[in-house]
Design a protein around this nucleic acid. Structure first.
Length: 109
DNA sequence: ACACTGACCACTG
DNA sequence: CCAGTGGCCAGTG
């Protein structure tokens, strides 16, 4: 765990998220021990484009809202990708979010 | 070197 | 129940 590996940690966790599942910034931050730094997690996702296997579209806020959809190549890319994986998205929000929620510290651990 | 911003979350009133 | 405020880390102007 080096100083610069903060992003790598986030990317790695996100990379472990199975298709059809969604996680939250807070869950990742909490898993890394930075519950209060959830903002950093989202900001780290900004560098996710540097890696090919970082499904940022599976990362949403704690309400299941696709907050970062506007940061994708296309605004609809996020919900489109989620729908392609079987995740129901309505009004830029994940339906049955609780059912699709994937906690790294609960299932990954 | 200082200040502001950012794909957020939790607590308090 | 809804609104407001604080906190965290790192990067950029």
């Amino acid at each position: 765990m080096d100083k610069e590996n903060f992003f790598a940690d986030v990317f790695e966790v996100v990379r472990q998220v199975p298709a059809g599942r969604v996680t939250t910034y807070g869950a990742i931050a909490n898993f890394l021990g930075m519950t209060r730094s959830a903002r950093m997690v989202g900001w780290a996702m900004n560098a996710s484009h540097t890696l090919p296997d970082v499904p940022a579209h599976r990362v949403v806020n704690r309400t299941g809202l696709l907050t970062g959809k506007h940061h994708f190549a296309h605004p609809s890319a996020m919900e489109d990708a989620l729908r392609a994986e079987g995740v129901e998205v309505e009004n830029d929000k994940v339906c049955h979010f609780q059912d699709h929620f994937w906690d790294p510290g609960l299932e990954l651990l």
